[in-house]
Nucleic acid binder design. Structure first.
Lengths: 356, 356
DNA sequence: TTGAAAGCGCTAACAT
DNA sequence: ATGTTAGCGCTTTCAA
């Protein structure tokens, strides 16, 4: 691989002239010089070393991207949109890390980014504790977090981009109530992410707004060993389905914390001999393309992923370029996609399978 | 961030001593010196700059990973296993790129890796043309390709790791034949990847081995606009299901080129009023965790993804360390997972819906 | 057992 | 309009 010195020699100019054309400082340059330089660059197939530039400038067009697990279709989708936006719109590459929701892994990732000279990082759907994030920010990282709301009243050095999770759950719940359901459950994996908290609040708010009696809207959660959410998430749904099927006075409709858990729930309900939506209605959240393929096709609350991805990328890169920009909070609105997993509740007294 | 010079000053030694301890050359060092250096490193929270090291040594612990689309659950799964193996077993980070099966994007990715000083790259499931790969290898990349067999007889500078796609399709097809099916279809997206070719050969070989009459085992394909395979792949399956349902003498069983296409097919068959496996049996390939959740649960051929990921990572890193190692081909065996989407064929004359 | 110094490939301030 | 040069933070001979 040829270096800037080779090019300078080949073009019969100095290295700074080469550097000038590489960096667009060509205004006060003789046309003929520029042409010779360009020809030399082509002739030698010269590509400037990013490593050397980084060492000199302290900048490099790369971003870090941390996800709990890229095998989770939702994170895969978000990651694709982020990588594509970073690359196509800003010429940045992305370094990916799976955290398995493990804060030591997160911290290790931040350390490595810094060592590699990468100063922008996007963190997807982490757990509640934010201290090691702020500490990474103090060490020089520009961070945007997806799917966590800023803690109200706490100054943060981090951008927060998220969907309005409260509204997402409220939308799903209100839809169910409008279809006549009076006994509802919100099903989730245990373990508190901030988005789960918001969703639970939205669920309860919708129930209360509809004047449902106390206890008519319950939260049911199931624990996972490895809390990072792909196949495990579906497993939780499946187990929870069994538990719900066995309840004496079971809910007639269920809001799942995300599509993956809903997929598991659909499968578990089927195992238990319950028909959706005849015996029980189900709403998911995420609006993955896969949710159109389940049987029945899943009614879900869709997130505006490509738009959010664009904002996320713009924020990191923008704040990297201008550190005086203050971090902010960006909330996106979800949208209910009606498909086939919701119907009116079964007539009272017919809640057991086969009675209809 | 402190530098090696800061540490040297703090410990009262020279920078080369610091460098020596950083690189484990501590054998002929006074114990007391070592301790002072280590204390200084801790005191200053010093982390050596990878960028500076790279410039000096030409090596950096990073790998490139190219996938058609990380939103595809199968690529997400492979990517997770690869990233985890690279990180946990070899301390390497990974730069991810989505190619959308576009060779200009692939080439651009290779260029950038080289510019960043990254010399190892893993390419997942690319199209047949390999010329721009070999050209990247000539420019210094160490490459391993997943899901492409080496072209027989052609010397290649690339490692090939793949599942035995011939065997995968043969397994699926033989299973169907053993259950009594005599009229089969292999369904796929059009567009030739090498793995599809192999699968088709395996499908046909199984049919022939069973003595099925000519024309009893047909290949049906559907085109996609954007050939990179996630939601589009399912869409193809869905469309093809409609086409199959409408056939006068339709196959009684179908082998899908991958699980995603099978998911679409299941949904499309349902749309068409056909019951699986009563009216038609379906086998997928990949063995995604999602295939356990469909209805009916999908019988599929599972790939040993974690093992393959480990081999892939070992090969790049091994050949990076020792360029004299020759590239090779590594074939893994798949395994049939029986679930609920396969049954005996419907009695002849009862192939139309509702006739049973 | 430790230190001095050259140099990896660039950028940019400063000279000319 | 172009050239000279001092680093950026390390590694690694070579000397002491």
């Amino acid at each position: 691989m040829s270096t800037i010195a080779d090019v300078a020699r080949h073009a019969g100019v100095s290295v700074s002239t080469i550097s000038n054309v590489l960096n667009g400082r060509v205004d006060r340059m003789r046309r003929e010089t520029l042409e010779r330089v360009e020809a030399a660059i082509v002739a030698l197939d010269f590509r400037p070393s990013r490593a050397a530039r980084l060492l000199k400038t302290g900048h490099t067009p790369m971003l870090g991207l941390l996800v709990p697990s890229i095998a989770n279709p939702m994170y895969g989708y978000i990651a694709r949109e982020i990588e594509t936006a970073a690359q196509e719109r800003h010429g940045h590459r992305v370094v990916l890390g799976n955290t398995y929701r493990n804060s030591a892994k997160e911290t290790g990732f931040f350390d490595d980014l810094l060592a590699h000279g990468i100063r922008g990082v996007i963190v997807i759907s982490s757990l509640v504790d934010e201290e090691h994030f702020e500490s990474a920010v103090r060490r020089g990282l520009v961070m945007v977090s997806y799917d966590r709301r800023a803690t109200p009243g706490v100054a943060s050095g981090i951008d927060h981009v998220s969907v309005d999770n409260f509204e997402a759950a409220r939308l799903a719940t209100a839809h169910l109530i409008a279809r006549g359901h009076q006994r509802l459950a919100f099903v989730t994996a245990s373990g508190q992410t901030m988005s789960r908290r918001e969703k639970i609040r939205g669920f309860e708010a919708a129930a209360e707004a509809a004047g449902l009696p106390r206890g008519a809207a319950q939260v049911i959660d199931g624990s996972t060993e490895s809390e990072y959410g792909d196949s495990e998430m579906a497993d939780v749904g499946r187990r929870l389905a069994g538990r719900i099927a066995a309840m004496k006075k079971r809910p007639t409709a269920v809001v799942a914390v995300n599509d993956l858990l809903a997929f598991g729930m659909l499968a578990g309900l089927r195992d238990a001999g319950l028909a959706v939506p005849r015996d029980l209605s189900v709403v998911g959240m995420d609006g993955l393309f896969l949710s159109a393929l389940t049987c029945p096709a899943l009614t879900s609350v869709r997130l505006p992923v490509p738009e959010m991805a664009r904002t996320i990328v713009e924020r990191v890169i923008g704040r990297l370029a201008d550190p005086s920009i203050a971090p902010g909070e960006f909330l996106f609105q979800p949208e209910l996609i009606e498909r086939e997993s919701v119907d009116a509740p079964p007539p009272e007294g017919a809640t057991h399978k086969g009675l209809r």
